[in-house]
Simulated scan of single mutants.
Amino acid sequence: MTNKYFEDEAITENDLFFVCYMIERVARKLHQHNKYVVNTIGYDELYHLMSVANVLHSSNPKQVEEDWINDYMLEKGDFDITLVNRELCDKIPTELDMGKVYSRLIVDTALPNEDYVSGIIRVYNNEICETIDNYNGSAYYEPSYVIARAYNEGGF
Rank of each mutant, 00 (worst) to 15 (best):
E87C: 11
D90P: 04
E153I: 08
D8Y: 14
D78Y: 01
L46N: 06
F6C: 08
L16Y: 05
E45Y: 13
L111N: 13
L49G: 01
F6D: 07
C89F: 10
R149V: 04
T2Q: 15
L46A: 04
R25L: 06
R86Q: 11
L88H: 08
F18Y: 15
V84E: 02
D97F: 08
K35Y: 05
N113P: 02
Q63N: 15
H31A: 00
Y102S: 07
I128M: 15
R149T: 10
D15N: 09
N14A: 14
M22E: 12
G154R: 07
E13C: 09
Y151V: 03
I11C: 12
L30T: 01
I120T: 07
I41Y: 00
N14Y: 11
Y102G: 05
P143L: 12
L96C: 04
A53T: 08
G154A: 07
K76I: 04
Y140A: 09
V117K: 01
R149C: 06
A148C: 00
G42S: 06
I11P: 08
A53V: 06
P143F: 11
V146F: 08
F17V: 03
L83D: 09
I11R: 12
F6W: 09
E95W: 05
N136M: 11
F18S: 02
D115V: 04
Y47L: 13
G155D: 10
H33M: 10
F17Q: 11
A27I: 00
F79M: 04
L46S: 05
I147E: 03
K100M: 14
S138P: 05
T40Y: 01
N113W: 06
Y145G: 03
L83K: 14
S138M: 07
G137T: 13
I132H: 01
L30F: 00
C20E: 10
M22F: 08
P93S: 03
E153H: 12
L16E: 05
E45H: 11
N34C: 04
D71Q: 12
L83S: 09
E7V: 14
T109A: 12
Y21N: 13
A150N: 13
V37D: 00
C129E: 14
R86G: 01
N54H: 15
N70V: 11
I11G: 07
Q32L: 00
L111H: 11
K100I: 14
I106C: 03
V19P: 04
L96M: 10
H48P: 08
D15H: 07
D67G: 08
N14R: 14
Y36S: 01
F79A: 05
R104T: 13
A27G: 04
V26S: 00
L96N: 05
N134F: 07
I92C: 03
M1E: 13
D80Y: 06
M98A: 05
S138G: 09
Y102P: 02
S138F: 08
Y43F: 14
V107R: 07
V107M: 10
S59F: 15
Y141D: 12
T2G: 12
A139K: 02
G42A: 04
M73G: 03
E142T: 11
Y36N: 00
G154P: 02
V107C: 08
P143W: 12
N125R: 05
R28M: 07
D44S: 12
L111W: 10
